[in-house]
Amino acid sequence: MVVPHHATGARLARHRLADELTDVVPPPLLADLVAVLAELVGNAVRHADPLPGGVVRVAWRLRTSAAGQQVQLRVTDGGAAGDPRMRTAGTDAVDGRGLHIVSGLADRWGVERDGLGQSVWAEFDPADVTRSDLAVAG
């Protein structure tokens, strides 16, 4: 799907993801997916150029196996001067935590560049207990 290169883009992407996967993945995994997608789209809007037409492309892929569902999220934008990177955020900082959230919830994440822009992706492996379950239990 494509969303505007604007703050509303993250909201539209979150709602569409939740609508499509609510009955497909466990609720704790869905909560992690929604949080990571919001961070990735928000970062694209704040730090990168849009794709032609002033948009950001958002995609997800679900693979089901005997072990459970593996999900990949991918957000493609027009690229930025530098690669996305984790920053150190002070306790009073209002930003700078997005990729830490992505790293904490996803099993892997990374960046791919091509001639049109960049994609930031995050993957979630199948598991009986997700990180959200662990955070609530801890």
Rank of each mutant, 00 (worst) to 15 (best):
T130R: 09
D32T: 01
S132E: 06
L21D: 08
S65L: 05
A13Q: 01
A80Y: 04
L62N: 00
D92F: 06
R74P: 02
H47D: 13
P26V: 15
R14E: 11
Q70G: 08
H100V: 06
D107Y: 02
E112G: 10
N43P: 06
L40Y: 00
G104I: 06
S132M: 13
G138D: 09
A127K: 12
G117L: 12
V136L: 12
L12A: 09
Q72I: 12
A66F: 00
T8W: 07
L29I: 06
E39V: 05
P28V: 02
A122T: 02
T76R: 15
G115E: 15
D49K: 15
A66L: 01
R97N: 13
R113V: 13
R74A: 15
G54D: 06
G78R: 12
D77I: 02
L73Q: 00
R46T: 13
Q118S: 15
S65V: 04
G78F: 05
L33N: 03
G54L: 07
R108K: 09
P28H: 05
A38M: 07
V45N: 08
L99K: 01
G110C: 08
G117R: 10
A18C: 09
L33A: 03
G110F: 06
V45W: 05
R131H: 08
R108N: 11
R74L: 12
A122M: 02
E20H: 11
R11P: 00
S65Q: 06
Q69Y: 02
A31Y: 01
S132T: 14
V25S: 03
D128G: 13
G96P: 09
L29D: 05
T64Y: 00
T91G: 10
R46Y: 09
A48H: 15
V71Q: 01
I101H: 05
D19Y: 13
F124N: 01
L21Y: 04
V24G: 07
S132F: 11
V120W: 01
Q70P: 01
D92G: 07
E112V: 15
A127G: 11
V55I: 10
L37T: 08
V75I: 04
R131V: 12
A31V: 09
A135I: 07
G68L: 05
G98T: 04
T22W: 12
A80L: 08
T64G: 00
Q118T: 15
V45Q: 08
L17V: 03
